[in-house]
């Protein structure tokens, strides 16, 4: 039995409703709020600032560091013990890799730009929401970037390729694959790609084509948030 009607009634390529706002944390050099469905991410950017310990410094460029964290009450079940875990460490790493290709910190050698993400409520797609929030926050902080990074998950639920899986779809009782993707707006290059589940190569390529269109919709929301910051 193929997956014909999505659990929340969306079309296969339809994303959940999105909202974004830049400049939400006054202390930060740049910040953003990004919401997709019931997943909410706050991002704050501090820097370029002095980097310690000194052996981490790169005399040719500034570097970025990401810190991803789910608030203890943000999970759909029991409270999450605060203090980070293996999952948040891994996500912090793949986020850094998703964003670094567009960032140009050559004018700020030896420095660091620290990026913090906190999620107060989640319903799948948290790393994608985090990356989309951070891209807005980095632009808001005036960090030079060659392109925008927009992120959303695609995947396959019981044979049907869909965009932006929610928690109920990730947990659907059939073969499911969840593929978080980040793409650059102009070149459509992929800077985040992970996959959980099972999918054929043919269907994966179909899903990645869908990701092109899906990340464009995220981009439109990011762009609007940044332009509204100064209107």
């Amino acid at each position: 039995m193929a997956y014909k009607k999505r659990v929340d009634g969306r079309k296969v390529d339809e994303l959940r409703p999105m909202e974004a706002k830049a400049g939400v944390i006054p202390n930060a050099d740049g910040s953003a709020y990004f919401k997709i469905g019931n997943t909410v991410a706050y991002a704050a950017v501090y820097g370029p600032r002095e980097l310690y310990p000194k052996f981490l410094q790169n005399p040719k460029t500034g570097i970025i560091r990401c810190f991803y964290n789910m608030m203890p009450f943000s999970g759909s079940g029991e409270r999450i013990r605060p203090g980070g875990n293996r999952r948040s460490k891994e996500i912090s790493l793949v986020m850094t890799n998703a964003l670094a290709p567009v960032i140009d910190l050559s004018e700020f050698p030896n420095t660091v730009v620290d990026i913090f993400v906190e999620l107060p409520q989640t319903d799948a797609g948290t790393r994608c929401a985090a990356i989309s929030a951070v891209a807005i926050a980095l632009a808001d902080a005036g960090i030079p970037m060659k392109d925008m990074v927009s992120s959303v998950a695609v995947g396959q639920v019981d044979g049907t390729v869909v965009a932006d899986l929610n928690y109920n779809e990730e947990a659907y009782p059939a073969i499911v694959s969840d593929i978080p993707v980040a793409m650059l707006h102009n070149s459509k290059q992929v800077t985040l790609l992970q996959m959980d589940g099972e999918i054929s190569k043919k269907d994966l390529l179909v899903a990645l084509e869908m990701a092109k269109i899906a990340t464009e919709q995220v981009y439109a929301v990011q762009m609007k948030a940044l332009k509204e910051r100064f209107q």
Partner: peptide, 23 residues
């Protein structure tokens, strides 16, 4: 402000902002 919590609030005093979530 958080549907995953059994209760949640956002409190702002001037520019100080704090969230509370109850599980």
């Amino acid at each position: 402000i958080s549907k995953t919590a059994e209760g949640s609030v956002r409190v702002q005093i001037g520019q100080t902002i704090i969230l509370a979530g109850l599980k």
